[in-house]
Amino acid sequence: MQNVSVRGPEVPRNIEALDPVFTVSDLSVFYGAYEAVRGVDLTIGNREITAMIGPSGCGKSTVLRCFNRMNDLIPGARPAGKIFFHDEDLYGDHVDPIEVRRRIGMVFQKPNPFPKSIYDNIAYGPKVNGMKGKMDSIVEEALIKAALWDEVKDKLKQNALSLSGGQQQRLCIARAIAVKPEVILMDEPCSALDPIATTKIEDLMQELARDYTIVIVTHNMQQAARVSDRTAFFTAEVDDAGERHGRLVEFDETSRIFTNPSDKRTEDYITGRFG
């Protein structure tokens, strides 16, 4: 069994009462005729960090990208089942995916700052959303929240691509924060970063979880164990027709998943006997 360090006492939050932000029921996602994910039931708690782990290709990103309707952009991608954001059907007819993405931010695997200045990277989101208020203070606040302000305050006009990978990723987090979202989705945000930069992002996530709901996809089990409150373990199953489908195996409090999983497959995965 792994040596698990559950979140320290510096961020005391009661993870017993689950106050749902997303309620996913019987979600399947298709790419054309291919059913990539099948029958997922999941609840994402308010101001919690939920981790999604599992071997690659089991549909973690696919599920994550349903939460802010990024899958709409892939021709042929189609969800079936229900996702509620609070009490609104995320895929309801009246829902504007643009507005969804403003309220549910996303950070990608590879840092993707715009080829513009640091300042303009942050200001872009508030500008396109027509946000009111002094831009300078919006930018400063976002950078402070993303723990990047001290490092960049003297070079806001510098091109964002001149930052290090870890700084770029924190810039992307700051950029997401600047539009004042409620949720931040992160798809393997540290997989392109070195261990020190990874630690900084993990610390930052702990900090951000006071104000935001965070869903993180990670292939790094230690990371899930370190930062998350709840963990969803996915795997890919082959059906009778020989097709692989992503399935949610187990969803529980992180400490339970890592110390006392109820499913044999979860136990095999976290002890390294599988995947």
């Binding site: 802010n68 990024m70 643009i98 872009y124 989101g125 396109v128 950029r175 539009v179």
Partner: peptide, 20 residues
């Protein structure tokens, strides 16, 4: 990734094309 980054911030497709 530039388009994704922009769209994920709630920019419209035309804003993404025109500004990024």
């Amino acid at each position: 990734s530039i388009r994704e980054g922009s769209l994920a911030l709630g920019a419209t497709q035309w804003q993404t094309i025109y500004r990024q």
